[in-house]
Design a protein around this nucleic acid. Sequence first.
DNA 1: CAAGTTATCAAGTGATCTATTGAATAGCAA
DNA 2: TTGCTATTCAATAGATCACTTGATAACTTG
Lengths: 229, 229
Amino acid sequence: MSLSEAKSALFEAIAMMGKAFASPVRLELLDLLAQAPRTVDELARASGQSTANTSQHLQALYAAGMVTRAREGTSIRYALAGKEALSLWLALRDASVARLAEVERAAHDYLGPEVDTIGREELIARMRAGEIVLIDVRPREEFEAGHIDGARSIPLAELEARLAELPVDREIVAYCRGPFCAYAHQAVRTLNATGRRAQRLQEGWPEWQLARRRAAKPAQRAASRTPRT
Amino acid sequence: MSLSEAKSALFEAIAMMGKAFASPVRLELLDLLAQAPRTVDELARASGQSTANTSQHLQALYAAGMVTRAREGTSIRYALAGKEALSLWLALRDASVARLAEVERAAHDYLGPEVDTIGREELIARMRAGEIVLIDVRPREEFEAGHIDGARSIPLAELEARLAELPVDREIVAYCRGPFCAYAHQAVRTLNATGRRAQRLQEGWPEWQLARRRAAKPAQRAASRTPRT
DNA sequence: CAAGTTATCAAGTGATCTATTGAATAGCAA
DNA sequence: TTGCTATTCAATAGATCACTTGATAACTTG
Protein backbone atom coordinates (compact mmCIF):
# COMPACT_ATOMS: atom_id res chain seq x y z
CA MET A 1 0.00 0.00 0.00
CA SER A 2 1.44 3.35 -1.01
CA LEU A 3 1.79 6.14 1.48
CA SER A 4 -0.91 8.27 -0.04
CA GLU A 5 -3.26 5.31 -0.24
CA ALA A 6 -2.68 4.63 3.43
CA LYS A 7 -3.33 8.24 4.28
CA SER A 8 -6.59 8.37 2.39
CA ALA A 9 -7.64 5.07 3.95
CA LEU A 10 -7.12 6.69 7.33
CA PHE A 11 -9.32 9.66 6.52
CA GLU A 12 -11.91 7.39 4.96
CA ALA A 13 -12.08 5.39 8.17
CA ILE A 14 -12.64 8.54 10.18
CA ALA A 15 -15.23 9.72 7.66
CA MET A 16 -17.14 6.50 8.33
CA MET A 17 -17.78 7.83 11.79
CA GLY A 18 -18.41 11.34 10.51
CA LYS A 19 -21.15 10.07 8.22
CA ALA A 20 -23.08 9.05 11.32
CA PHE A 21 -23.69 12.73 11.96
CA ALA A 22 -24.67 13.66 8.41
CA SER A 23 -28.35 12.77 8.58
CA PRO A 24 -31.04 14.47 10.67
CA VAL A 25 -32.77 11.15 11.26
CA ARG A 26 -29.63 9.61 12.73
CA LEU A 27 -29.10 12.66 14.90
CA GLU A 28 -32.61 12.35 16.26
CA LEU A 29 -31.95 8.70 17.03
CA LEU A 30 -28.75 9.62 18.84
CA ASP A 31 -30.64 12.25 20.77
CA LEU A 32 -33.24 9.71 21.83
CA LEU A 33 -30.56 7.20 22.79
CA ALA A 34 -28.87 9.84 24.91
CA GLN A 35 -31.88 9.59 27.20
CA ALA A 36 -32.24 5.84 27.48
CA PRO A 37 -31.50 2.65 25.56
CA ARG A 38 -34.43 1.66 23.33
CA THR A 39 -35.59 -1.01 20.96
CA VAL A 40 -35.85 -0.49 17.21
CA ASP A 41 -39.60 -0.32 17.38
CA GLU A 42 -39.61 2.26 20.14
CA LEU A 43 -37.14 4.38 18.25
CA ALA A 44 -39.17 4.07 15.07
CA ARG A 45 -42.29 5.30 16.80
CA ALA A 46 -40.52 8.05 18.70
CA SER A 47 -38.87 9.40 15.57
CA GLY A 48 -41.82 8.90 13.26
CA GLN A 49 -39.85 6.75 10.82
CA SER A 50 -40.68 3.36 9.38
CA THR A 51 -39.24 0.38 11.21
CA ALA A 52 -37.13 -0.64 8.22
CA ASN A 53 -35.68 2.82 7.81
CA THR A 54 -34.97 3.13 11.49
CA SER A 55 -33.27 -0.25 11.46
CA GLN A 56 -31.05 0.80 8.60
CA HIS A 57 -30.02 4.03 10.23
CA LEU A 58 -29.28 2.16 13.43
CA GLN A 59 -27.07 -0.20 11.54
CA ALA A 60 -25.22 2.75 10.08
CA LEU A 61 -24.71 4.09 13.59
CA TYR A 62 -23.54 0.67 14.69
CA ALA A 63 -21.04 0.45 11.86
CA ALA A 64 -19.79 3.88 12.86
CA GLY A 65 -19.24 2.63 16.40
CA MET A 66 -21.68 5.10 17.91
CA VAL A 67 -24.12 2.58 19.39
CA THR A 68 -24.13 -0.89 20.86
CA ARG A 69 -26.93 -3.42 20.54
CA ALA A 70 -28.16 -6.42 22.47
CA ARG A 71 -30.93 -8.84 21.79
CA GLU A 72 -33.66 -8.93 24.40
CA GLY A 73 -35.96 -11.78 23.60
CA THR A 74 -37.68 -10.92 20.40
CA SER A 75 -36.48 -7.33 20.20
CA ILE A 76 -33.10 -5.65 20.00
CA ARG A 77 -32.14 -2.84 22.28
CA TYR A 78 -29.75 -0.16 21.07
CA ALA A 79 -27.75 2.10 23.36
CA LEU A 80 -25.15 4.82 22.98
CA ALA A 81 -21.67 3.35 22.84
CA GLY A 82 -20.08 4.69 25.95
CA LYS A 83 -18.97 8.06 27.17
CA GLU A 84 -17.12 8.97 23.99
CA ALA A 85 -20.24 8.65 21.87
CA LEU A 86 -22.29 10.76 24.24
CA SER A 87 -19.60 13.34 24.53
CA LEU A 88 -19.15 13.51 20.76
CA TRP A 89 -22.84 14.04 20.14
CA LEU A 90 -23.03 16.77 22.76
CA ALA A 91 -19.89 18.43 21.38
CA LEU A 92 -21.34 18.50 17.88
CA ARG A 93 -24.63 19.85 19.10
CA ASP A 94 -22.97 22.56 21.16
CA ALA A 95 -20.60 23.54 18.40
CA SER A 96 -23.43 23.83 15.95
CA VAL A 97 -25.31 26.08 18.34
CA ALA A 98 -22.25 28.21 18.76
CA ARG A 99 -21.60 28.48 15.04
CA LEU A 100 -24.80 28.22 13.11
CA ALA A 101 -27.36 30.94 13.46
CA GLU A 102 -29.91 28.64 11.89
CA VAL A 103 -29.77 26.26 14.79
CA GLU A 104 -30.60 29.08 17.17
CA ARG A 105 -33.48 30.14 15.00
CA ALA A 106 -34.79 26.61 14.64
CA ALA A 107 -34.40 26.08 18.35
CA HIS A 108 -36.32 29.21 19.12
CA ASP A 109 -39.20 28.29 16.83
CA TYR A 110 -39.36 24.96 18.51
CA LEU A 111 -39.03 25.95 22.11
CA GLY A 112 -41.19 29.05 22.17
CA PRO A 113 -40.56 32.00 24.50
CA GLU A 114 -37.71 31.62 26.97
CA VAL A 115 -38.42 30.97 30.64
CA ASP A 116 -36.36 31.50 33.80
CA THR A 117 -33.37 29.21 34.06
CA ILE A 118 -31.00 28.00 36.72
CA GLY A 119 -27.49 26.61 36.32
CA ARG A 120 -25.94 23.44 37.62
CA GLU A 121 -23.94 24.83 40.54
CA GLU A 122 -26.78 26.98 41.79
CA LEU A 123 -29.16 24.04 41.62
CA ILE A 124 -26.82 21.84 43.63
CA ALA A 125 -26.33 24.51 46.29
CA ARG A 126 -30.01 25.36 46.66
CA MET A 127 -31.08 21.73 46.66
CA ARG A 128 -28.65 21.06 49.46
CA ALA A 129 -30.26 23.95 51.34
CA GLY A 130 -33.66 22.34 50.79
CA GLU A 131 -35.01 25.37 48.96
CA ILE A 132 -36.00 23.58 45.80
CA VAL A 133 -38.27 20.85 44.51
CA LEU A 134 -36.69 19.22 41.48
CA ILE A 135 -38.94 17.48 38.97
CA ASP A 136 -38.06 15.34 35.97
CA VAL A 137 -40.70 15.95 33.29
CA ARG A 138 -39.50 13.33 30.82
CA PRO A 139 -41.51 10.17 30.12
CA ARG A 140 -41.38 7.68 32.94
CA GLU A 141 -39.17 5.13 31.19
CA GLU A 142 -36.46 7.70 30.61
CA PHE A 143 -36.56 8.67 34.27
CA GLU A 144 -36.20 5.03 35.16
CA ALA A 145 -33.22 4.62 32.85
CA GLY A 146 -31.42 7.32 34.83
CA HIS A 147 -32.11 10.67 36.49
CA ILE A 148 -30.67 13.36 38.73
CA ASP A 149 -30.45 12.32 42.38
CA GLY A 150 -33.28 13.80 44.38
CA ALA A 151 -35.57 14.44 41.42
CA ARG A 152 -39.19 13.31 41.31
CA SER A 153 -40.70 11.95 38.13
CA ILE A 154 -43.68 13.95 36.90
CA PRO A 155 -43.95 13.39 33.14
CA LEU A 156 -45.20 16.49 31.38
CA ALA A 157 -48.34 14.66 30.29
CA GLU A 158 -49.29 14.11 33.93
CA LEU A 159 -48.29 17.52 35.23
CA GLU A 160 -51.68 19.20 35.18
CA ALA A 161 -53.36 16.25 36.85
CA ARG A 162 -50.72 16.11 39.59
CA LEU A 163 -50.37 19.80 40.37
CA ALA A 164 -51.64 19.17 43.88
CA GLU A 165 -48.45 17.26 44.66
CA LEU A 166 -46.41 20.39 44.15
CA PRO A 167 -46.02 23.13 46.79
CA VAL A 168 -47.09 26.70 46.08
CA ASP A 169 -44.57 28.21 48.46
CA ARG A 170 -41.36 26.64 47.20
CA GLU A 171 -39.34 27.13 44.09
CA ILE A 172 -39.77 24.33 41.53
CA VAL A 173 -37.06 23.41 39.04
CA ALA A 174 -37.93 21.30 36.00
CA TYR A 175 -35.51 19.53 33.70
CA CYS A 176 -35.91 17.27 30.70
CA ARG A 177 -33.81 15.94 27.83
CA GLY A 178 -31.56 18.89 27.25
CA PRO A 179 -31.50 22.46 26.00
CA PHE A 180 -33.47 21.56 22.85
CA CYS A 181 -36.22 19.67 24.60
CA ALA A 182 -39.47 21.57 24.92
CA TYR A 183 -40.81 19.67 27.95
CA ALA A 184 -39.18 21.74 30.68
CA HIS A 185 -40.16 24.98 28.94
CA GLN A 186 -43.79 23.92 28.89
CA ALA A 187 -43.68 22.66 32.44
CA VAL A 188 -42.37 25.99 33.71
CA ARG A 189 -45.09 27.84 31.80
CA THR A 190 -47.76 25.58 33.23
CA LEU A 191 -46.42 25.98 36.77
CA ASN A 192 -46.16 29.75 36.41
CA ALA A 193 -49.77 29.87 35.23
CA THR A 194 -50.83 28.30 38.53
CA GLY A 195 -49.00 30.91 40.56
CA ARG A 196 -45.96 28.80 41.37
CA ARG A 197 -42.39 30.00 41.10
CA ALA A 198 -40.64 27.72 38.61
CA GLN A 199 -37.37 27.58 36.68
CA ARG A 200 -35.89 25.43 33.97
CA LEU A 201 -32.56 23.71 34.55
CA GLN A 202 -30.25 24.89 31.78
CA GLU A 203 -29.08 21.41 30.98
CA GLY A 204 -30.74 18.02 30.65
CA TRP A 205 -30.06 14.52 31.81
CA PRO A 206 -27.37 13.65 29.23
CA GLU A 207 -25.25 16.66 30.11
CA TRP A 208 -25.67 16.04 33.83
CA GLN A 209 -24.73 12.42 33.44
CA LEU A 210 -21.66 13.20 31.35
CA ALA A 211 -20.44 15.75 33.90
CA ARG A 212 -20.89 13.16 36.62
CA ARG A 213 -19.03 10.50 34.65
CA ARG A 214 -16.22 12.89 33.82
CA ALA A 215 -15.85 13.83 37.46
CA ALA A 216 -15.81 10.18 38.47
CA LYS A 217 -13.16 9.17 35.97
CA PRO A 218 -11.48 12.11 34.31
CA ALA A 219 -11.42 11.96 30.50
CA GLN A 220 -8.32 10.38 29.08
CA ARG A 221 -7.70 11.84 25.68
CA ALA A 222 -7.37 9.10 23.09
CA ALA A 223 -5.10 11.39 21.09
CA SER A 224 -2.37 11.12 23.62
CA ARG A 225 -2.47 7.36 23.56
CA THR A 226 -0.23 5.63 21.11
CA PRO A 227 -1.82 3.69 18.28
CA ARG A 228 -0.60 0.13 18.61
CA THR A 229 -0.42 -2.87 16.37
CA MET B 1 -44.51 25.94 11.85
CA SER B 2 -45.70 22.73 13.47
CA LEU B 3 -43.83 21.26 16.37
CA SER B 4 -42.54 18.27 14.46
CA GLU B 5 -41.47 20.47 11.57
CA ALA B 6 -39.56 22.66 13.99
CA LYS B 7 -37.94 19.65 15.56
CA SER B 8 -36.77 18.21 12.26
CA ALA B 9 -35.53 21.66 11.22
CA LEU B 10 -33.40 21.64 14.33
CA PHE B 11 -31.82 18.30 13.55
CA GLU B 12 -31.36 19.31 9.94
CA ALA B 13 -29.47 22.38 11.06
CA ILE B 14 -27.17 20.27 13.20
CA ALA B 15 -26.76 17.75 10.37
CA MET B 16 -25.48 20.63 8.20
CA MET B 17 -22.50 20.75 10.48
CA GLY B 18 -22.27 16.98 10.70
CA LYS B 19 -22.00 16.70 6.93
CA ALA B 20 -18.72 18.57 7.17
CA PHE B 21 -17.22 15.40 8.65
CA ALA B 22 -18.73 12.98 6.14
CA SER B 23 -16.05 13.22 3.44
CA PRO B 24 -12.43 12.08 3.67
CA VAL B 25 -11.32 15.00 1.55
CA ARG B 26 -12.89 17.51 3.91
CA LEU B 27 -11.33 15.76 6.88
CA GLU B 28 -7.92 16.00 5.29
CA LEU B 29 -8.47 19.71 4.71
CA LEU B 30 -9.47 20.15 8.35
CA ASP B 31 -6.38 18.25 9.37
CA LEU B 32 -4.18 20.53 7.30
CA LEU B 33 -5.91 23.63 8.63
CA ALA B 34 -5.30 22.41 12.16
CA GLN B 35 -1.62 23.08 11.49
CA ALA B 36 -1.80 26.49 9.90
CA PRO B 37 -4.13 28.69 7.87
CA ARG B 38 -3.64 28.20 4.15
CA THR B 39 -4.81 29.41 0.78
CA VAL B 40 -7.00 27.36 -1.52
CA ASP B 41 -4.12 26.63 -3.82
CA GLU B 42 -1.85 25.48 -1.02
CA LEU B 43 -4.57 23.19 0.29
CA ALA B 44 -5.24 21.83 -3.16
CA ARG B 45 -1.60 20.92 -3.64
CA ALA B 46 -1.19 19.53 -0.14
CA SER B 47 -4.24 17.32 -0.46
CA GLY B 48 -3.70 16.31 -4.07
CA GLN B 49 -7.11 17.55 -5.18
CA SER B 50 -8.01 19.85 -8.04
CA THR B 51 -8.36 23.50 -7.14
CA ALA B 52 -12.05 23.57 -8.03
CA ASN B 53 -12.81 20.54 -5.91
CA THR B 54 -10.84 21.92 -3.00
CA SER B 55 -12.66 25.21 -3.30
CA GLN B 56 -16.02 23.48 -3.21
CA HIS B 57 -15.17 21.45 -0.15
CA LEU B 58 -13.89 24.56 1.56
CA GLN B 59 -17.15 26.28 0.85
CA ALA B 60 -18.99 23.34 2.38
CA LEU B 61 -16.81 23.65 5.47
CA TYR B 62 -17.48 27.38 5.52
CA ALA B 63 -21.23 26.84 5.31
CA ALA B 64 -20.93 24.37 8.17
CA GLY B 65 -19.19 27.04 10.23
CA MET B 66 -16.00 25.03 10.57
CA VAL B 67 -13.64 27.48 8.85
CA THR B 68 -13.23 31.20 8.35
CA ARG B 69 -11.81 32.86 5.26
CA ALA B 70 -10.14 36.14 4.46
CA ARG B 71 -8.99 37.60 1.19
CA GLU B 72 -5.26 38.30 0.96
CA GLY B 73 -4.64 40.16 -2.24
CA THR B 74 -5.40 37.77 -5.01
CA SER B 75 -5.75 34.67 -2.89
CA ILE B 76 -8.07 33.61 -0.06
CA ARG B 77 -6.76 32.18 3.16
CA TYR B 78 -8.87 29.68 5.07
CA ALA B 79 -8.45 28.94 8.77
CA LEU B 80 -10.14 26.76 11.35
CA ALA B 81 -13.03 28.61 12.97
CA GLY B 82 -11.87 28.94 16.52
CA LYS B 83 -11.29 26.61 19.40
CA GLU B 84 -14.61 24.81 19.02
CA ALA B 85 -13.82 23.69 15.48
CA LEU B 86 -10.39 22.41 16.47
CA SER B 87 -11.74 20.67 19.49
CA LEU B 88 -14.55 19.07 17.50
CA TRP B 89 -12.18 17.72 14.87
CA LEU B 90 -9.86 16.30 17.51
CA ALA B 91 -12.81 14.79 19.39
CA LEU B 92 -14.06 13.05 16.26
CA ARG B 93 -10.62 11.77 15.41
CA ASP B 94 -10.04 10.48 18.92
CA ALA B 95 -13.45 8.87 19.15
CA SER B 96 -12.95 7.12 15.85
CA VAL B 97 -9.63 5.75 17.06
CA ALA B 98 -11.23 4.57 20.24
CA ARG B 99 -14.17 2.93 18.48
CA LEU B 100 -13.18 1.80 15.03
CA ALA B 101 -10.64 -0.92 14.59
CA GLU B 102 -10.21 0.11 10.99
CA VAL B 103 -8.73 3.43 11.96
CA GLU B 104 -6.08 1.72 14.01
CA ARG B 105 -5.29 -0.60 11.15
CA ALA B 106 -5.14 2.24 8.65
CA ALA B 107 -2.99 4.25 11.02
CA HIS B 108 -0.60 1.41 11.53
CA ASP B 109 -0.22 0.82 7.79
CA TYR B 110 0.50 4.47 7.36
CA LEU B 111 2.87 5.08 10.23
CA GLY B 112 4.96 1.95 10.08
CA PRO B 113 6.56 0.37 13.16
CA GLU B 114 6.08 2.20 16.46
CA VAL B 115 8.95 4.12 18.03
CA ASP B 116 9.62 5.27 21.60
CA THR B 117 7.25 7.95 22.80
CA ILE B 118 7.09 10.53 25.53
CA GLY B 119 4.04 12.21 27.04
CA ARG B 120 3.26 15.86 27.59
CA GLU B 121 3.98 16.12 31.31
CA GLU B 122 7.24 14.21 31.11
CA LEU B 123 8.37 16.37 28.22
CA ILE B 124 7.64 19.56 30.13
CA ALA B 125 9.48 18.32 33.20
CA ARG B 126 12.53 17.10 31.34
CA MET B 127 12.75 20.16 29.14
CA ARG B 128 12.73 22.31 32.24
CA ALA B 129 15.61 20.20 33.51
CA GLY B 130 17.47 20.84 30.25
CA GLU B 131 17.74 17.15 29.48
CA ILE B 132 16.07 17.31 26.11
CA VAL B 133 16.43 18.86 22.67
CA LEU B 134 12.98 19.37 21.15
CA ILE B 135 12.66 19.53 17.38
CA ASP B 136 9.66 20.37 15.21
CA VAL B 137 9.92 18.30 12.03
CA ARG B 138 6.96 19.86 10.19
CA PRO B 139 7.45 22.06 7.14
CA ARG B 140 8.83 25.48 7.98
CA GLU B 141 5.64 27.43 7.31
CA GLU B 142 3.71 25.35 9.80
CA PHE B 143 6.36 25.94 12.42
CA GLU B 144 6.09 29.63 11.73
CA ALA B 145 2.31 29.57 12.10
CA GLY B 146 2.75 28.24 15.62
CA HIS B 147 4.92 25.80 17.56
CA ILE B 148 5.80 24.54 21.02
CA ASP B 149 7.89 26.99 23.03
CA GLY B 150 11.53 25.98 23.01
CA ALA B 151 11.32 23.82 19.90
CA ARG B 152 13.73 24.15 16.99
CA SER B 153 12.49 23.86 13.44
CA ILE B 154 14.15 21.05 11.51
CA PRO B 155 11.78 19.99 8.72
CA LEU B 156 12.01 16.28 8.06
CA ALA B 157 13.29 16.94 4.55
CA GLU B 158 16.33 18.75 5.98
CA LEU B 159 16.99 16.38 8.85
CA GLU B 160 19.72 14.27 7.26
CA ALA B 161 21.58 17.32 6.00
CA ARG B 162 21.43 19.00 9.39
CA LEU B 163 22.32 16.06 11.61
CA ALA B 164 25.47 17.84 12.73
CA GLU B 165 23.36 20.40 14.57
CA LEU B 166 22.03 17.73 16.87
CA PRO B 167 23.96 16.41 19.87
CA VAL B 168 24.84 12.73 20.19
CA ASP B 169 24.84 12.78 23.98
CA ARG B 170 21.40 14.23 24.67
CA GLU B 171 17.95 12.87 24.25
CA ILE B 172 16.10 14.27 21.22
CA VAL B 173 12.31 14.55 21.07
CA ALA B 174 10.55 15.08 17.75
CA TYR B 175 6.98 16.15 17.19
CA CYS B 176 4.90 16.88 14.11
CA ARG B 177 1.25 17.27 13.17
CA GLY B 178 -0.32 14.78 15.50
CA PRO B 179 -0.62 11.08 16.22
CA PHE B 180 -1.41 10.28 12.57
CA CYS B 181 1.46 12.21 11.10
CA ALA B 182 4.36 10.09 9.93
CA TYR B 183 7.04 12.79 10.13
CA ALA B 184 8.00 12.31 13.78
CA HIS B 185 8.10 8.53 13.35
CA GLN B 186 10.51 8.84 10.49
CA ALA B 187 12.60 11.44 12.26
CA VAL B 188 13.05 9.17 15.27
CA ARG B 189 14.05 6.27 13.04
CA THR B 190 16.58 8.42 11.24
CA LEU B 191 18.05 9.71 14.51
CA ASN B 192 18.21 6.23 16.00
CA ALA B 193 20.06 5.05 12.91
CA THR B 194 22.79 7.61 13.64
CA GLY B 195 23.22 6.41 17.21
CA ARG B 196 21.22 9.15 18.87
CA ARG B 197 18.64 8.58 21.54
CA ALA B 198 15.32 9.90 20.22
CA GLN B 199 11.65 9.80 21.11
CA ARG B 200 8.42 10.89 19.53
CA LEU B 201 6.08 13.24 21.39
CA GLN B 202 2.74 11.45 21.67
CA GLU B 203 0.79 14.45 20.52
CA GLY B 204 1.23 17.07 17.84
CA TRP B 205 0.94 20.81 17.58
CA PRO B 206 -2.88 21.01 17.39
CA GLU B 207 -3.36 19.01 20.59
CA TRP B 208 -0.67 20.98 22.39
CA GLN B 209 -2.21 24.24 21.29
CA LEU B 210 -5.72 23.22 22.32
CA ALA B 211 -4.50 22.16 25.76
CA ARG B 212 -2.78 25.51 26.15
CA ARG B 213 -5.88 27.41 25.06
CA ARG B 214 -8.08 25.40 27.37
CA ALA B 215 -5.78 26.07 30.28
CA ALA B 216 -5.72 29.78 29.49
CA LYS B 217 -9.48 30.12 29.26
CA PRO B 218 -11.33 27.08 30.49
CA ALA B 219 -13.91 25.66 28.10
CA GLN B 220 -17.39 27.05 28.59
CA ARG B 221 -19.88 24.47 27.50
CA ALA B 222 -22.29 25.94 24.95
CA ALA B 223 -24.92 23.48 26.18
CA SER B 224 -25.25 25.26 29.46
CA ARG B 225 -25.88 28.57 27.78
CA THR B 226 -29.46 29.46 27.11
CA PRO B 227 -30.53 29.79 23.48
CA ARG B 228 -31.84 33.32 23.14
CA THR B 229 -34.12 35.17 20.80
C1' DC C 1 -45.04 -27.26 15.38
C1' DA C 2 -47.72 -23.11 13.96
C1' DA C 3 -48.81 -18.27 14.69
C1' DG C 4 -47.40 -13.87 15.91
C1' DT C 5 -43.92 -10.30 16.85
C1' DT C 6 -39.67 -7.94 15.96
C1' DA C 7 -35.94 -6.89 13.24
C1' DT C 8 -33.22 -7.32 9.10
C1' DC C 9 -32.45 -7.91 4.22
C1' DA C 10 -32.99 -6.98 -0.85
C1' DA C 11 -34.39 -4.37 -4.58
C1' DG C 12 -35.87 -0.18 -6.65
C1' DT C 13 -36.55 4.87 -7.21
C1' DG C 14 -35.70 9.57 -6.55
C1' DA C 15 -32.63 12.69 -4.32
C1' DT C 16 -28.16 14.26 -2.98
C1' DC C 17 -23.16 14.27 -3.24
C1' DT C 18 -18.59 14.15 -5.56
C1' DA C 19 -15.32 15.26 -8.82
C1' DT C 20 -14.46 16.98 -13.43
C1' DT C 21 -14.59 20.33 -16.98
C1' DG C 22 -14.66 24.81 -18.83
C1' DA C 23 -16.22 29.45 -18.26
C1' DA C 24 -16.58 33.59 -15.31
C1' DT C 25 -14.97 36.83 -11.72
C1' DA C 26 -11.79 39.51 -8.55
C1' DG C 27 -7.66 41.48 -7.71
C1' DC C 28 -2.87 42.76 -9.20
C1' DA C 29 0.67 44.60 -12.20
C1' DA C 30 2.38 46.61 -16.27
C1' DT D 1 -6.63 49.02 -20.75
C1' DT D 2 -4.46 44.16 -21.24
C1' DG D 3 -2.55 40.16 -19.32
C1' DC D 4 -1.90 37.10 -15.26
C1' DT D 5 -3.11 34.54 -11.15
C1' DA D 6 -6.27 32.77 -7.68
C1' DT D 7 -10.71 31.51 -6.83
C1' DT D 8 -15.46 30.59 -7.72
C1' DC D 9 -19.40 29.30 -10.55
C1' DA D 10 -22.18 26.21 -13.65
C1' DA D 11 -23.11 22.07 -15.84
C1' DT D 12 -22.54 17.29 -15.87
C1' DA D 13 -21.96 12.17 -15.23
C1' DG D 14 -21.28 8.74 -11.92
C1' DA D 15 -21.55 7.33 -7.27
C1' DT D 16 -23.75 7.13 -3.00
C1' DC D 17 -27.66 7.82 0.05
C1' DA D 18 -32.52 7.81 1.85
C1' DC D 19 -36.78 5.86 2.03
C1' DT D 20 -40.31 2.54 0.44
C1' DT D 21 -42.03 -2.03 -0.29
C1' DG D 22 -42.20 -6.83 0.21
C1' DA D 23 -39.78 -10.93 1.62
C1' DT D 24 -36.97 -13.33 5.11
C1' DA D 25 -34.95 -14.55 9.56
C1' DA D 26 -34.90 -14.84 14.81
C1' DC D 27 -37.28 -15.47 18.62
C1' DT D 28 -41.51 -16.24 21.84
C1' DT D 29 -45.77 -18.16 22.93
C1' DG D 30 -49.65 -21.25 22.55
